[in-house]
Computed example of a mutant assay.
Amino acid sequence: MFERFTENARRTISAAVEIAAETGATRAGPEHLLLGLAADERGTAASVLAGYGLTASALRAATPRPGGRRCLTDEETSALRGVGADADEVFRRIEQEFGSAALFDQPEPPVRSRPRDWLAGPLDAGARKVLELCLREAIALRHREISTGHLLLALLRHDLPGPVSTAVRRAGVTYGDARRRVVHALRQPR
């Protein structure tokens, strides 16, 4: 399947792995793929995201940093406020009761060594699922190659994790509208 990816799509996936490593994640996830898409200004996905006002820096700010305190989405924080709770106080009490490491993300356990293909490498299960879905997106559109646009559509179909999902939703990005924009962009001569 790797041979079907365009050069930009391959660069995006490599960038996602680098971004994950920079942020301390043990594997690249869907949020890192989205950051890679936004960072590649030559890609279809970056231009579509820019049309919604989503830049690499805005998405990076919305991406939780592994090894730090687990983030709550805006909806979760609102739900806590709705019942009269303060998120900072909740965190303080959990740390007081269970220790300061209780709210820190734990790294994924190491995968047993076995022969791997390119997709099984430094990507988590969510990112691997996105790569499967981008092949389906390309097939559905009757495209021979898998571009960054197909990666974006697969990410939107898969659902992004918490805070990144909130940022994308706030920008008004929907699968249907993004699909229309990607198809239009892919029809344009380069």
Results as ranks from 00 to 15, higher is better:
F2A: 11
N8K: 09
S14G: 15
A15D: 13
V17E: 15
V17T: 12
E18M: 09
E18I: 14
I19H: 14
I19P: 13
A20I: 12
A25G: 11
R27F: 15
G29N: 12
G29I: 02
E31F: 07
H32V: 03
L33E: 01
L35C: 03
D40L: 04
A45G: 05
A45N: 09
L54G: 08
L54Y: 07
T55E: 02
S57L: 10
A61V: 12
A62N: 00
P66I: 05
G67Y: 07
G67M: 07
G67D: 07
G67K: 05
L72R: 09
T73G: 06
E75L: 11
T77D: 15
L80K: 10
G84V: 08
D86C: 11
D86Q: 10
D86G: 10
D86M: 10
A87Y: 12
F104Q: 15
P107N: 01
P107L: 03
R112A: 13
P115G: 13
P115E: 14
P115T: 13
L119F: 13
G126V: 01
R128Y: 00
R128T: 03
K129T: 05
V130E: 02
L131R: 01
E132M: 08
L133K: 02
A140F: 02
L141F: 01
L141H: 06
L141K: 08
S147R: 01
T148S: 08
G149K: 01
D159Q: 14
V164L: 05
T166G: 11
T166P: 04
R170Y: 07
T174S: 06
T174C: 05
G176F: 08
D177Y: 03
A178E: 00
A178D: 02
A178P: 03
R180P: 10
R180W: 11
V183R: 11
V183W: 11
L186A: 09
R187P: 08
Q188T: 15
Q188H: 10
